[in-house]
């Protein structure tokens, strides 16, 4: 009996490892290709053992527009995260504690998240064109509010729900103002949640593609995903440079997700699964 059980668990483990290999291999292949020289990239059969080189990264860092696009992505994402957190957390607090709008308002925010972004791009494009906002540095941080405010509302609601309301009540009784309760009680108590929420907002903004592609034109506004998508041409020869750039786009979310793994499932489900 115990022997049978151990065989079963070995089979289970084997299946899990095969699945894991399937889900990790493309990411491995991306990084490995970025570390190969041109000849090794196109070697058939593929070279599993090779001498890694940083020359692709060197080229991308010093001889291409990628550093600037990376900066654009960073600035866009960070400024959007700041505004999203302030506006979204305020709304979450108002809905949770002051009972404004209730369930209806929450699901209204959720339905905004469910809207296909392409649907918004056409009217937004016409409006921003007439306001002269296409290809400016402020358009993307503003547009990403559509994605991130509903997310912050739901996430922060789930964190605020976890603080006992009695703490806030007693602070009120002790003479703390409404803003004071929010700033001195609620925010410090939800600080880890606030940081995690911000990190996930950052990943969304960092990865966003369709709005960035439609609303930016030049190298001083384009973000990293748009730059990478431009590599897809009829004949893609420079795979080393392409994969090196894609690696630069992939590394920050991977690191952040690793650090904040405790909150990721919660984040990917809008705070619904803890």
């Amino acid at each position: 009996m115990p022997k049978k059980k151990s065989i079963k668990s070995i089979v289970h483990s084997a299946i899990i490892i095969v699945a894991l290999a399937f889900f990790v291999f493309p990411i491995y292949w991306l990084f490995v290709t970025a570390l190969k020289i041109q000849v090794d990239i196109f070697a058939m059969p593929p070279k599993w053992i090779f001498t890694p080189t940083l020359q692709n990264f060197y080229h991308v860092f010093f001889e291409s527009a990628i550093p600037q696009l990376t900066m654009n992505s960073l600035i866009t994402a960070l400024s959007n995260v700041g505004i999203s957190l302030v506006i979204g957390t305020m709304a979450a607090y108002g809905i949770t504690r002051y009972k404004i709008g209730g369930q209806k308002l929450l699901f209204w925010f959720l339905s905004i998240r469910m809207l296909p972004p392409i649907v918004a791009t056409i009217p937004l494009f016409i409006i921003s064109a007439s306001l002269g906002l296409i290809d400016t540095r402020i358009i993307l941080p503003v547009l990403y509010l559509i994605i991130n405010i509903p997310f912050v509302v739901w996430m922060m609601k789930s964190f605020i729900d976890e603080i006992p309301e009695s703490i806030e009540e007693s602070a009120r009784i002790d003479g703390c103002s409404h803003w004071g309760v929010l700033g001195r009680i609620v925010l410090p108590l939800t600080a880890p949640g606030l940081v995690a929420t911000g990190v996930i907002c950052f990943i969304f903004a960092w990865n966003e593609f369709i709005l960035a592609m439609v609303f930016t034109r030049s190298a001083h506004t384009r973000t990293l995903p748009v730059g990478i998508s431009a590599f897809i041409t009829e004949e893609m020869i420079l795979w080393g440079y392409i994969t090196a750039s894609a690696s630069i786009a992939a590394i920050p979310p991977l690191i952040l997700a690793w650090i904040f793994q405790r909150y990721m499932v919660r984040g990917l489900t809008f705070g619904a699964v803890k």
Binding site: S9, H12, S13, I16, I17, L20, F23, V24, P26, I27, W29, L30, T33, I203, W206, N207, F209, L224, P225, I228, S229, F231, I232, M236, W239, I242, T243, A246, A249, A250, P253, L254, L256, A257, W258, Q261, M264, L268
Partner: peptide, 30 residues
């Protein structure tokens, strides 16, 4: 859930956090 290698689970997070653009690029290559 019933396995002893549960600690590996976090590696499964990787595909979901990478930009779809990057995912598309690497799969096109493959």
């Amino acid at each position: 859930a019933s396995s002893r290698i549960r600690w590996l689970r976090i590696s499964f997070l990787m595909p979901a956090v990478i930009a779809p653009v990057v995912v598309g690029l690497i799969w096109r290559f493959m």
